[in-house]
Design a protein around this nucleic acid. Structure first.
Lengths: 193, 193
DNA sequence: TGGGTAATGTCGGTTAGGCGACAAAAGTGA
DNA sequence: TCACTTTTGTCGCCTAACCGACATTACCCA
């Protein structure tokens, strides 16, 4: 990340996407800790130095790749994501469960202590989406003395945390069922319609 | 094709491949004559000017894309293509039939008179492969007074021409059957084992 | 037929990517 | 522990890709 880079430049978009795809592809085959920057660059048909022009290290790329994949999944399965509804909330929770589970695949043995919470990118994205929903007029009112920002933060962490914990458990239930329960729980924090 | 370009440069390889893939993808959807350079460049995430740095026009790209796809098909289905055998010849003929038929798909109404023989790229590749086979010791001898070069030329055109004509016919037989017959015919031009 | 529109090629100036080399850090094994 | 190897970041020079603009050519339909 030496010099500033113009994210609008088509070359930049393409390079970042190639790196993300290469990384995901490698994650399918092996463990995160075994993947080298050289491998990622090779598969992306990009020079290793170029990698460092876009990402701090492979952890940084992990963040970015997860966030991007989450966005894509969201765009594909929730076309009008900006509109609030209970069904949308449940679908959002389901998607998060699935995405977190996917990235935890073969990545469980806590890479270097801090890695486990790297998927926090998803939490940040979720918070932004929730904020958009909560600003809409038909959204139920927050509890007295609780700001929209706070509520979004609480919800996003609740969902993300549940997803993380669930993904680490051995025998896990279907994501849809757990998503339903989590959604019901969240809705109880706001005034009934 | 303004300045000469280094084919070894990874950026060049990638760009050319992106353009070829974009082109094939567009060919799946519509007719050749309706495809614009701008469309190809857009789908390849490449600038239109960059297109012209690599190819004369879309006909040039067509040549290159066909040649490349043919090579790939060959590499995938005939691992040791450099070794001569009757079975290899029959397989080669079959692949040519399929490739020519594929590129003629939705391209029949002879685009601008000369387009029909643009697939000649395949003929050129075929000739090179045949030459390699004919130089091997276990290849049957050419007829008296006929050079290897000539034989390779005759064979390659025979195969390619048959494939072209066959691909234009309405009700066509299975490629395997016709390939068998063409192969048998070709083999009669050389002295029996 | 003629005029508007779209596609085609081409040209300099700018920016990102490729490359080789380097030191530093991390991993490996005797 | 200490060499040896691999991987990691970083730097400067060069090349290819991007961009906007332009003249040219093809196309369409009034």
């Amino acid at each position: 990340m030496a010099t500033q880079i113009n994210l609008g430049d088509p070359r930049v978009k393409r390079t970042r996407q190639l790196l993300q795809e290469a990384f995901i592809s490698l994650m399918m085959e092996g463990r995160f800790r075994d993947i080298t920057v050289q491998q990622i660059a090779d598969r992306a048909t990009v020079n290793r130095a170029t990698f460092y022009a876009h990402f701090e290290d492979k952890f940084d790329l992990l963040d970015s790749a997860i966030r991007e994949r989450f966005k894509q999944e969201l765009a594909a399965r929730m076309p009008n994501a900006s509109v609030w509804s209970k069904d949308h909330l449940r679908l959002l929770v389901t998607i998060i469960f699935e995405c977190v589970a996917m990235t935890n695949h073969e990545c469980k043995p806590s890479d270097r202590d801090f890695a486990p919470y790297r998927e926090r990118a998803i939490q940040e994205e979720t918070e932004a989406i929730l904020l958009g929903w909560m600003r809409q007029p038909n959204f139920p009112g927050s509890p007295e003395g609780v700001t929209t920002q706070t509520l979004a933060m609480v919800w996003s962490w609740a969902i993300f945390g549940a997803a993380t914990q669930w993904s680490r458990s051995e025998r896990r239930a279907e994501p849809e069922e757990l998503a339903r329960q989590v959604t019901l729980t969240l809705l109880r924090t706001v005034s009934a319609l």
